[in-house]
Structure formats: C-alpha cells, structure tokens
Design a protein around this nucleic acid. Structure first.
Length: 420
RNA sequence: GUGAGUGUAGCUCAGUGGUAGAGCGCUGGACUGUGGCUCCAGAUGUCGAGGGUUCAAAUCCCUUCACUCACCCCA
C-alpha cells in the first residue's frame, strides 16, 4: 500500500487551483483597497500563546491542537487560528508605537485535530482580518461591510450576516449565572450534553440541536437584556452604522462563540449548502486580548473566512488553462526546430508546448486539442524545405502558411489581438 | 472521542458463493501529414488490508485501515 496524505490534509490539484487564486487575489484587492496591510505569521507558536488567548477550557485547546515538544523540550503548537499570532506580532514588534491603529490581514493554513467532515479539515485555510486600536462601533460595522463586500465580489450570494453582543465581562458574568440557574431549573428537559454544558459553558445550550433543549431555550434569558449601558450603546452603534452602509444583517441573540477572548460584538456569516458547518466566516471584538498577552490596553476586532467553505459556495464554472500554442513537429530536424522555437516562445511568456515523444501528426493534433491549445504550429519536412510553417487556428479550424522568419512575430501578434 | 454509510480499472459504478465487468477516460488505428464526430482494437485491477469458513470468496464471518456524512466543536 502506497503512502497516502495524512488524514484531514489534502492536496489542491491544478484543476482546482484557480479557485484558490481567485479567493486570494480578490481578498488582496479588496483589503488593500480598504487600507489593510498584509503580513505573514509563523506556522508554529509556543503553546501557551493559544492556551492564554483562546482559553484553557475550550475544545480547541483541550483536544484539537497539534502540540509537541521540540528538541529543547519546549511545547510548540501548529497554529489553530491566526488572531493570537497576529496579536502577538503586534505586541512583539511594538506596532502600537508607530500608531495604535493597525489594520492587518493574513492568508494561510491552520491546523486542528478534529474528525474531518464536509467543510472541516485538519489543515484548513483562512483569510484572517484584524483591526487593532479602535474601540468605536464604526469599525465593527466597517469590518463586517468589508467581509460582505468581499463575498459579493466573488458572486457568493444567499449569505446571511448574523450579529450579537456578548457584552463585557462585567455584564456577562451575572448573565451567565442567571442562565445557569435557569438551566438547572429545567435540567430534566435537557439532553445529557446540555446538562454537562450547563456548568462549564451554559451559552452552548443555545445552539444545541436537540428538540427538547430548543424548546427550553426559547424562554431562556438573553444576553441583550443584561448588557451594561456602554455595551448596549456600542451594540446600537454597530447596528446603526451597518444600516448607514445598507449592509443587511440579522440580530441573533442566541449566537455563541467558542473562543474565550470575545467581548461585545460577535458575528457570523451563515450560508446554505455547507452541510452541518454552515458558517463561512466568523469573528468578533476582543477588547482585552492584547493586554492579556502582555501588550498595551488596546482593543481589537477581527474575523476569519474559511476558504474551503467559501470554495464550496463559489459559483460553478468550467476553468481550463490551456496552452496558447502547440508546436507539432515531424522528423528529427523539425523536432529540434520545434524545441528551440517553443523555448523562445516560453521566454517571451507565451504558454507553448511540444510533444517530446516523436508521435504521429495525428497524435500531436489530438494532444493539442486535448490541452485546448489556441494555435498549432506545424513543422514537417515539407515546411523545412519550403521555409514556411503552417499556423492553424484550432477554434476556427483554419490554417495558413507563415514564412519561418516571421512565425514568432505572427503568433505573438495574433495572441495579443485575441483573434484573427 | 462517538455513531452511521461506503471501499471493485485513472473516474463513476454494476457484479450477493462458480473464469472480474460496463460507461467515460487513456493509447493506437480506420484517415501512410491535420484535432473535435463516428467506428474498431488495445492496455490498465494485490476486488482497501489481514485472518477465517468453503471443493470454490469481490460476494459469508471476524479484525483492521481509509474515505464520507453526522454528533461534539468550529472557519
């Protein structure tokens, strides 16, 4: 049995690569246009960066991280998300010294040890966007608007932006207590999972799929009723700014996030057709993360887009990137000519290919057709004798003789013109 | 970590105890120097792996691995 890729890790093949390029190119265009700067972070971090930021008791840290000891015995982790690293870099390079405001993004792979399923892999890719240093609700709305705009430039429709506010620690703690009390009072109607969640993370009961739990939760207390004045004002501001940009959204008071560092605004983009994992992007505000990681008291907000999930939503289209030119040669001398000529075309940036095996003309034409070459240049013994090659337009099925000295210019000018 | 489904040619799949198949794709030919359409021929399989039952196993039994989907959780 031959060696296979590690479970949950996959190859992106040439037939698929255009989707990835499209996502990345569009992301850079949109984000650069909105004043963001790309940066790159390492794949590995010290483990404690994630346990401190994401939260010691979260599933990600407890059971999903790829953590191992390096040769010094230090525990290092393959990053399960980007925000912690971005914050670490912001602090480590004292980016706040130049200006506390930093609008940053990063595109790359993340790693979580989970059972793979649709839209979920052990190595997956995110477009990660972070804004440090702004606490105004304006930036929350702006970041969401950018996200929705990006999706629409890709032709991805039918997504819904859902928003919520989790409040700050001051308003969340009393809420959690009340919710826990509520759940205890109804524990007989809850599923075993929710009875377990009740103590550790009562908010989780909101997105439980068991029918009994959903019925109970319709009467559960909601965070929005517990928001302090500042948090309530902030949330109202976010909504107003979204409306001022005509960005549609829905408040989902039951939306819960899995990472501990979130405060106030949280949001998700939900899409159909993703299977059980219906969130294509998600994010939120984290006003204490940077300070907790040893930086200044600077707030932050950001989101991540799941690229594999986004690709599932991309409108389907045929995409085949064939050569512009196929040079078909007959005979050894012609083959030497074709080889040198094709190299010249390649140097000039023309996607040109030849057959290396000395096949029949028919076979070479079939190959040219299979790879969807735009033009075929035929060089045989007759052509070498008369000094004229045959240039065939494969789409129009028309061909004409071209004298050797002008072959190069002729092909280039046809390709530039796009037709003839 | 839990549950269910599926593993047969490069791909999609048929084959329920008796000589491993089809379509598509691939290579070549008909057309001795012209692609697509048509027709013809050919190549390609440890039937996921290991063990067991049987005169005989792709098929039945056990074990194991992988993939897929779902749970948990998340992008």
């Amino acid at each position: 049995m031959s060696v296979k890729a590690v479970r949950g890790f996959s190859d992106i093949l040439p037939s698929e690569i255009w989707r990835w390029r499209l996502l990345e190119e569009r992301a850079r265009e949109v984000l650069d246009g909105f004043g963001f700067s790309e940066m790159r972070i390492p794949i590995l971090e010290r483990m404690e960066l994630f346990s401190r930021s994401i939260g010691e008791e979260t599933d990600i840290v407890e059971k999903e991280m790829y953590t191992f000891a390096d040769r010094n015995g230090d525990l290092i982790t393959l990053r399960p998300e980007a925000t912690a690293s971005m914050a670490r870099a912001y602090i480590e390079h004292k980016m706040y010294a130049f200006d506390p405001v930093a609008k940053l993004y990063f595109i790359g792979p993340m790693f979580r040890y989970e059972r793979p399923q649709k839209g979920r892999y052990r190595q997956f890719h995110q477009i990660d966007v972070e804004v440090f240093g702004i606490s105004q609700p304006m930036i929350d709305a702006e970041v969401m608007a950018i996200l929705m705009h990006y999706l629409s430039t890709l032709g991805v429709n039918g997504c819904e932006l859902q928003i919520n506010s989790l409040g700050c620690p001051r308003c969340r703690l009393p809420y959690k207590e009340d919710l826990r009390t509520f759940l205890r009072d109804h524990s007989l109607q809850l599923c075993p999972d929710c009875r377990r969640r009740m103590e550790k993370n009562p908010l989780r009961a909101f997105d439980c799929k068991a029918q009994g739990c959903q019925e109970v939760m319709t009467d559960a207390p909601l965070v929005e009723d517990y928001l302090c004045r500042e948090c309530a004002d902030h949330f109202a501001g976010v909504k107003a700014y979204l409306e001022s940009m005509d960005v549609p959204y829905r408040v989902n008071p039951r939306m819960v996030r899995g990472l501990d560092y979130y405060t106030r605004t949280t949001f998700e983009v939900i899409a159909e057709g993703l299977g059980a994992q219906n969130a294509v992007a998600a994010g939120g505000r984290y006003d204490h993360l940077i300070e907790e990681l040893g930086g200044p008291g600077v707030p932050g907000i950001g989101f991540a887009i799941g690229m594999e999930r986004l690709i599932l939503l991309l409108p389907d289209q045929a995409h085949f990137y064939g050569p512009s030119l196929f040079i078909a040669a007959l005979g050894e001398e012609a083959q030497r000519e074709a080889f040198a000529l094709s190299y010249r075309f390649n140097l000039a940036g023309v996607r040109s290919m030849i057959d290396y095996e000395g096949r029949s003309l028919k076979a070479q034409m079939r190959r040219a057709n299979k790879f969807r070459a735009r033009y075929v240049l035929i060089i045989g013994e007759d052509e070498l004798r008369t000094g004229k090659a045959i240039l065939r337009d494969m789409e129009k099925s028309k061909q004409q003789e071209v004298p050797f000295p002008s072959v190069f210019k002729e092909v280039i000018s046809r390709l530039k013109g796009g037709s003839v």
